[in-house]
């Protein structure tokens, strides 16, 4: 047996400290709040699972969760195919590549609250380019008053903001395919669709898994943009979990329920991400098993 050298721990200590301060300690603070009650002045009382029960029993929570799910579902449905489509049509070499990459990266470089502000102004019926043009064209569009218009605005904004990410990831997957695969497919007489189905899509699958995960997590946690554009309205129509959470914690200062909700929110994201990942990588395991047999 090799002697165990405990000094190695010293090398990972900085990372452990960093992770502790950036993730573990804040998370445990929230866990701490979620099982206690306070009336201010830093006095806390044990409350057990009361807040969890309260959150899970509230209609407000389930409605917000439902809105989150619908929102994430819609934007995944649009951004993934659209991103793949754009990647397939991006140039593979020549001067167009750099121009394309820069253009695609632009929306990703804009701070999120600025994105919100841009669209908030863009969509305004009185002075916004989009809003007033639609009004001129006779379309009844007002995201401040109409829930459907508010949703459409948020979805279009998210698609504008994030489709580039999907496209860039898919593009990275595409350019990593060796020429021989395309040449072999031509020799085999494969149609354009067959090339996509059997060469490009399988090679893109891995990066698309990451794209779906990232886009799901991000859209499920969306806060800044709807907060800036609609503030959760009209009514509660665009009040997502994150917005509700901030209202509860900062607006009403209900620390206990807000902390309980945070934990539930976190677990939901963890669960969904795990399910996505497990489903999308199951073929890899099959392949690995085949290799050993």
């Amino acid at each position: 047996m090799k002697p165990v050298n405990q000094k190695a721990w010293l090398l990972v200590a900085p990372v452990l400290a960093l992770v502790a301060f950036s993730a573990v300690i804040p998370l445990m603070t929230v866990v701490n709040y979620s099982v206690q009650d306070t009336f201010g002045a830093n006095q806390f009382f044990w409350a057990g699972t009361v807040w969890y029960e309260q959150v899970l029993a509230s209609e407000r929570f389930w409605n917000a969760l439902g809105r989150n799910l619908v929102f994430s579902f819609i934007i995944l449905l649009i951004e993934i195919p659209l991103g793949v489509f754009i990647a397939l049509n991006m140039p593979k070499k020549g001067p167009g590549v750099a121009a394309c990459l820069v253009l695609m990266a632009l929306p990703l470089l804009i701070p999120w609250n600025v994105v919100g502000t841009i669209w908030q102004v863009f969509g305004r019926v009185d002075i916004g380019l989009l809003g007033s043009s639609l009004a001129l064209a006779g379309v009844d569009y007002n995201y401040v008053q109409d829930p459907v218009d508010a949703w459409v605005t948020l979805i279009v904004m998210d698609v504008w903001h994030w489709t580039s990410l999907v496209a860039l990831l898919a593009y990275a997957g595409l350019v990593s395919i060796p020429d021989a695969f395309y040449q072999a497919a031509r020799i085999d007489g494969a149609s354009g669709w067959a090339v996509f189905r059997f060469v490009q899509a399988p090679k893109m699958a891995r990066v698309l898994t990451i794209a779906v995960l990232l886009r799901f997590m991000d859209s499920f946690m969306i806060y800044t943009e709807p907060f800036v554009v609609t503030g959760g309205g009209p009514g509660n129509s665009t009040t997502f979990l994150s917005i509700d959470l901030v209202q509860m914690a900062v607006g009403q200062f209900d620390l206990g329920p807000a902390a309980a909700m945070s934990i539930i929110y976190f677990l939901i994201i963890l669960l969904f991400s795990w399910v996505f990942y497990a489903v999308m990588t199951r073929h890899d395991d099959e392949g690995a098993k085949g290799g050993q047999s």
């Binding site: 060796p178 021989a180 040449q183 072999a184 031509r186 007489g189 149609s191 060469v199 399988p202 073929h283």
Partner: peptide, 30 residues
Amino acid sequence: ERRNIAQVFQFPVIYDTMTVAENLAFPLRN
């Protein structure tokens, strides 16, 4: 596609998602 020529490359090219038999059948089915 229209020259009807077969070519085998230096490094293996296979269609990942297909079985061995489907790989072999691919040029015929096309």
